[in-house]
Amino acid sequence: MTGLRLVLVMVVAALFGVLPALAGDGPFPTIPKGKGGKCVEDTQFMRRNHMDLLKHQRDETMREGIRTTEHGLQGCISCHAVQGADGKPVTIKSEEHFCNACHSYAGVSPDCFACHASVPPVGASPPGAVHGQGPTP
């Protein structure tokens, strides 16, 4: 009986993410670094409010045709693209994708990439180059 209980406890623990933590990733998500030095807003602010900024920008762009790009998704995608093993940016299907890094951890699935491209356009100049900085590895 005790053995059965132990198994049960382990299963429950695994379900709640204790095992992944023991596997060495640490209890917090690993967030890939962006390019170009600095985000459009303060990092802490972005962590809490990026969805509102994106939504605001999306509605202005879509509904009214305001084409500023400060808080647009394309900006996020360009700066935060994560290179895969093949040297190309990984898509949202990969756990390595910047958005997935947090969203998988938090168990929140963003709906953006059902429609939006999750990688920068092919042939787009690396954003780092604009600022004269190399991409952060």
């Binding site: 390019k35 600095k38 790009t69 400060e70 394309q74 900006g75 920068p120 100049s125 604009v130 600022h131």
Partner: peptide, 9 residues
């Protein structure tokens, strides 16, 4: 596009 993608500074 460039303007958009450099929205970092």
């Amino acid at each position: 596009d460039r303007a958009g993608s450099c929205g970092c500074s």
